[in-house]
């Protein structure tokens, strides 16, 4: 499968989507000018990945900041992984937040309440 590596900027996140190395990771800041366009290839990749996912998928989020438009898309991404879980593969979200960043911790907790994927919370 195609590997997607997007280098982050001050308003877009680092994205690594690599099925062979089994790395799926989002980090940095997300407030792109056009969230739909930015995340379209990501959503497409996950839909492709869902056809033959790894037996266990860790979805890593290590975000410092995201705006509300991004928060909606992140939920869409998580729901795609929920489909993969429901189809029989193991999926775990690894949610990283800075030690004193209550907002980011709470955001992770909220997502875990909305989607049926197990979340492992990590402070750093």
């Amino acid at each position: 499968m195609e590997v997607i590596k997007i280098k982050g900027t001050d308003d877009t996140p680092n994205v690594i989507l690599d099925a062979e190395s089994n790395i799926i990771e989002f980090s940095g800041r997300s407030l792109p000018e056009d969230v739909v366009t930015f995340y379209a290839p990501v959503i497409q990749w996950i839909e492709e990945y869902a056809k033959s996912p790894n037996p266990k998928t860790d979805v890593i989020f290590r975000l410092e900041y995201f705006n509300t438009a991004s928060s909606k898309i992140l939920l869409d991404i998580l729901l795609k992984f929920e489909d993969i879980l429901n189809a029989g593969s193991e999926v775990v979200v690894q949610w990283y937040f800075q030690e004193d960043d209550e907002d980011m911790e709470e955001a992770g907790e909220e997502y875990s309440e909305i989607v049926d994927i197990p979340f492992e919370m990590h402070s750093y």
């Binding site: 739909v36 509300t68 438009a69 928060s71 909606k72 898309i73 939920l75 909220e110 909305i114």
Partner: peptide, 26 residues
């Protein structure tokens, strides 16, 4: 507010301009 935000995130859709109806709640 937390519940309203979650509800809007689940049920709302992104507008053409990328608005999610979440800004004011947030």
């Amino acid at each position: 507010l937390k519940e309203l935000f979650k509800k809007q995130m689940r049920e709302g859709s992104l507008s053409e301009k990328g608005g999610a109806g979440l800004g004011l709640i947030d």
